[in-house]
Design a protein around this nucleic acid. Structure first.
Lengths: 330, 330
DNA sequence: AATGTTGTGGTAAGCGCTTTCTAGCTGTCC
DNA sequence: GGACAGCTAGAAAGCGCTTACCACAACATT
C-alpha cells in the first residue's frame, strides 16, 4: 500500500509536506506543491481515509437508519439523500433498525460516522436519546422521535390528513375507514390525527372498528382492506401510498371498483402513485426536497459546533386529485 | 470521548489489556476480563472503529455501487445484500456510479472499505480493472463487467431470454418486439441475445426496427412502447420488470388491452410483478438469494487471502406464467 | 546593523486502537 | 533449591494521517 511517506520520498520532501501540499495548504510553495502532485500521480497515491479520520476525528460519513429497505417508499428518500450528502462531501452508510438499539447503536456510536439521519424513528425508540447523550448529531427525516427534539425535516402530516378528511366530506362520504401507519410513529399518528380532526369538524365519526393500522407497507393495505369492507365504507384513507396501493390491489382482487365502489386516498405521492394503473389521489409534498433538507440540516449541525437551536423544517402538503376518488353511491 | 485508556484507568489495568479483554483474548484472566467489562460498561465505552481500522488495516465495510437508487428494482437487491453483509459482520456503504470512475474510484480506493459489490457495472466500466489493480476485492452482482473476470453472482440471462422466446413462439406470436436494457450491460445484452437466439430457433425474425433499448427504468418502457406499436407487434419482451411495467402503463394510456391486444413479458419477477394490477408474466429467479450469494462470495474472497480462482454462481431462471400473455389475434 | 516579518517546510507529537516483545509471578520438576 | 515452563499483563511500537511548533532563509523596517 502506498502511503504519503512513499510520495514524500519520491518528491524529496517530508511526509507532512505531502499532506499539506495535496490539501492545498497555503504554506507550501507552488513549486513543491507541483512536485508533490506529480509524485502522487506517479504512484497513483490515494490518501487513507482511515488515517485522516483518526487524526481529524471526523469521517465524512453519515449513517442513515431505515427499517425496511425493500419498501418502495424508501428509495425516493434515500436517492436524493445520498446525492445531497455527496454534494456536501459526505458518504452514506445504510443501517436497518430492525435489530433494535442494541447492535445498531453500537455501530452508530463507534465514531465511524459524523452524524445520523433517522428516517425510521419510532416514538419509543431510545436511539435519539442515546445519540444526544453521545453528542452525535442527528436529524429526523420524515418522522420524528419521541420525547427528544432535534433537527427535523418533516411534512405537515396533520394538515395532510385534514385535507383528505375535508375532501371526503365535500364529496359526501359519511362511511369512512382508515388504514393508518404504525401508531408508534409520528407519521402514522399525525396523519391519522389530522384525518380524525378533519372528519369530526365535518361531523363525521370514525369508529375504531373502521380503523386498521400496521407497517407502512403493501401487505398492511392488502390485508386490511378486506376486513374493513365488511362495514361497507365508501372511502378509505391510507397512511401512505404504499398501503394505498396494497389496498388498491386487494380491491382489484375482490372485484371492488375504484372509485365507483370505493374511494381510495393515499399519502406521499411517490412516483408510482401517478402511474396510469393507479392514478392515485393522494397527498403530495416535495419528497426529494424533504430528503435534501434533512441532509442540509444535518451537515450544518455537524459543521457548526455552536450548539444552535434545533431547527424544524415543515413541508406543506397539498391534495392531488387524480382518479381514485368520487362521490359515494354510484 | 471515552477511549480504552479511560477504561483502563478505571479498571486499574493497562490500555492494551482493555483491548484484549474486550475482544476475548484468551490471555487475560477471567477476573480482569470481568473487571474491564464492568469498567467499560460503567463508562459506556464503545471502541473506536477508526482506531481499530488503522491498526488492523481492515474496516468491516463494504461498498455497494449502483446507478439509480430510485429504481424500484434495486431495493430488492440492496435489502437482502445489506442483511447478509451484516450477518457476516460488515456494514454497507452506498455509492452511485453516475459520477463515473473519477470521483467514485477515489472514494472506493481510499481504503475505507474492504471490498466492493458492483451491482451496476457497464461493460465499458474501468472500475473492475482499477479495483483489480489495487487488489481491492470485488464481486459482480446481477451484471458482469467487461473484460475483467471476477467473482460473480448472476442469473442465466441468456437462458431467461430464450425461455421467453420459446413461450412466445409456442403461443403463436410472429410479430414480436423487444424493449431491451442498455446494450452496455451484460444483463441487457445477454437477455436480448438469448431472446434472439430463441426466436431464430423458432424461425422468427426480430428486425432491428422492432427493438428499443434504454436504462432499466420505467420511462424506457413507457416511451418505447408507443413507438413500437406502429409496427403492430402482438408481443413485447421487456429487459426487466420495471421496463415492462412502464410499457404496461403506456398500454393503459393508449387503450391497448393486455393481454388481448398485446402480450407483455418482463424479467426479474420483482414483488411488484405479482401485484394484481400487473400480474405480469415474467422470468423468475431468486433475487434475494442472488444478492446473498454475492455477499458471501465477496466476504469469502476478502477473508481468504489465498488468491483463489474466480467463482461464478449462475442462477437458473424459470418462466412464471401469469396473465399478461396470450395467443395473438383475439 | 539590529530587529522584525514573512514565507516555507521540517520535527515531533498525537489520534485510538492492535500486536509484539518482554517481564513478573506462580508453580513444578528433577 | 534452582531452572524452567506457563500464565498474565505491561511497555513500546506502529498503523497513516494532521497539526502545533519551531527553524531557517530572505527580505523589509527603523
Amino acid at each position: 500500500m502506498i502511503t504519503s511517506r512513499d510520495v514524500a520520498r519520491l518528491a524529496g520532501v517530508s511526509q507532512p509536506t505531502v499532506s499539506r501540499a495535496l490539501r492545498g495548504d497555503q504554506r507550501v510553495s507552488e513549486d513543491t506543491r507541483e512536485k508533490v502532485r506529480r509524485a502522487a500521480e506517479a504512484l497513483s497515491y490515494v490518501p487513507s481515509e482511515t488515517g485522516r479520520s483518526l487524526s481529524t476525528r471526523t469521517t465524512n460519513r453519515i449513517g442513515v437508519v431505515v427499517t425496511d429497505l425493500t419498501n418502495p417508499f424508501y428509495p425516493h428518500l434515500i436517492g436524493p439523500l445520498h446525492d445531497e450528502l455527496e454534494r456536501h462531501g459526505y458518504r452514506m452508510m445504510l443501517f436497518t433498525e430492525r435489530d433494535e438499539t442494541a447492535v445498531t447503536s453500537q455501530r452508530l456510536l463507534d465514531r465511524s460516522i459524523d452524524g445520523v439521519v433517522l428516517a425510521t424513528a419510532t416514538v419509543s425508540s431510545r436511539l435519539p436519546e442515546e445519540l444526544q447523550r453521545r453528542e452525535l448529531p442527528f436529524v429526523f427525516l420524515n418522522r420524528e422521535g419521541g420525547g427528544q427534539s432535534g433537527d427535523a425535516a418533516v411534512v405537515d402530516n396533520e394538515l395532510g390528513g385534514r385535507l383528505v378528511a375535508q375532501e371526503l366530506a365535500r364529496l359526501g362520504h359519511r362511511d369512512i375507514a382508515c388504514i393508518g401507519g404504525p401508531s408508534e410513529t409520528t407519521t402514522g399518528r399525525d396523519r391519522e390525527m389530522g384525518f380524525r380532526l378533519g372528519l369530526s369538524e365535518a361531523g363525521i365519526a370514525l369508529p375504531e372498528t373502521s380503523v386498521r393500522r400496521g407497517p407502512f407497507d403493501f401487505d398492511t393495505g392488502y390485508r386490511a382492506l378486506e376486513e374493513l369492507l365488511e362495514a361497507r365504507p365508501t372511502a378509505v384513507f391510507c397512511g401512505n401510498d404504499v398501503i394505498a396501493i396494497g389496498a388498491f390491489n386487494a380491491a382489484r382482487r375482490l372485484g371492488v371498483r375504484i372509485p365507483e365502489d370505493l374511494t381510495l386516498i393515499g399519502f406521499d405521492d411517490i412516483p408510482m402513485a401517478s402511474w396510469e394503473t393507479f392514478d392515485l389521489t393522494t397527498v403530495h409534498y416535495d419528497l426529494a426536497a424533504l430528503a435534501q433538507t434533512s441532509a442540509r440540516l444535518l451537515v450544518e449541525r455537524i459543521e457548526s459546533d455552536g450548539r444552535a437551536e434545533a431547527r424544524r423544517t415543515l413541508f406543506e402538503p397539498s391534495l392531488v386529485l387524480r382518479s381514485t376518488h368520487a362521490s359515494p353511491g354510484r
